[in-house]
Design a protein around this nucleic acid. Structure first.
Lengths: 158, 158
DNA sequence: ATTTTCCTTGACGTTAACGTCAACGTCATA
DNA sequence: TATGACGTTGACGTTAACGTCAAGGAAAAT
């Protein structure tokens, strides 16, 4: 159904685009976060692999561990996956387990949002204070440029 | 100026309150994040130590490393510190360095906020999906409670 | 007096998430 | 043909942030 000429990426292409190393990509594959196809021995990443990588990196930025990210990805792929059974556990107990974990993580994320707002506020007051310190202690850029202009003039007079 | 009977905390009190281990507190001291006073050999934590610990844990939750947190704390203490000089570097170059770092961190935090919102959204759809799965696969709680009621009735008949 | 309980300082172990290096294949190009 | 550029798989190294003993001091309860 999919015409054969889809966009693909080499490992270093993806690495460069997302500013990570090839080692990291191989590591994510080892951990089951990515499953690129092979052409011979060489990895070939598809557009969906790329999208998944996006998810991974976003997950990392918000503090998820790779194991947690894998769990999320697994459920995502089951979600949008085929309608039938694909050999997974599928037990409602497992769902309830994951559900609990997800819900607590959502709570943690809300808390984290507040913490981030607080941290931003603190860092901003810190920045403001440092700016006043710099302005107090340092001969201002204006003075410096005047000094340079004066030097130039003096050299010209010689 | 401070009346001598201030509130103090033992290491395990603080550990219990913030749900961390005493080892972590000692570790933070080793790293220069906390500087509790001593009574003999035993650590005695003040209210300001407690507040600082709050800052540390909040910093950790938003993804700061302990080194970064120490940098922030150092500047905070210089900020609200004494008016004179306290043997610190105080060079404007150092300030500009830290200022840059703080500003980039603020940018990262804003990005992080967006990422968190996205992650919350995704996790919520994940939860919703799992809830439908559970509802589909599991005999509902309503059925369960009806079964319990029936059992109770049956026992009463005996 | 002795047993708990809480504290201390080392010192080594652990986990996550890669970094780094070695040794090797393979293709395009000079 | 040989010389890079890019890819592969191990295997070991590294850093952060503690965990986990071991060995012992001091105070409080039995």
């Amino acid at each position: 159904m999919q015409h054969s000429a889809s966009i693909t990426y080499s490992i270093s292409e993806l690495a460069q685009e997302f500013d990570i190393t090839a080692r990291a990509l191989r590591f994510y594959e080892d951990k089951g976060l990515l499953t690129p196809s092979r052409q011979g021995q060489t990895r070939v990443f598809s557009a969906t692999d790329r999208a998944r990588l996006r998810l991974i990196l976003r997950g990392k930025r918000v503090g998820f561990s790779l194991d947690e990210i894998r769990e999320m990805i697994d459920l995502e792929s089951m979600n949008s996956g085929n309608s039938g059974n694909s050999g997974n556990s599928g037990s409602p107990l497992a769902y309830q387990l994951s559900l609990k974990r997800f819900q607590t993580r959502i709570e943690a994320l809300r808390q984290q949002r507040e913490d981030i707002d607080d941290a931003i506020a603190e860092l901003e007051t810190g920045c403001a204070w440092m700016e006043t310190r710099i302005a107090d202690l340092e001969p201002s850029e204006e003075l410096k440029s005047r000094a340079r202009a004066f030097e130039a003039l003096a050299r010209a007079r010689l």
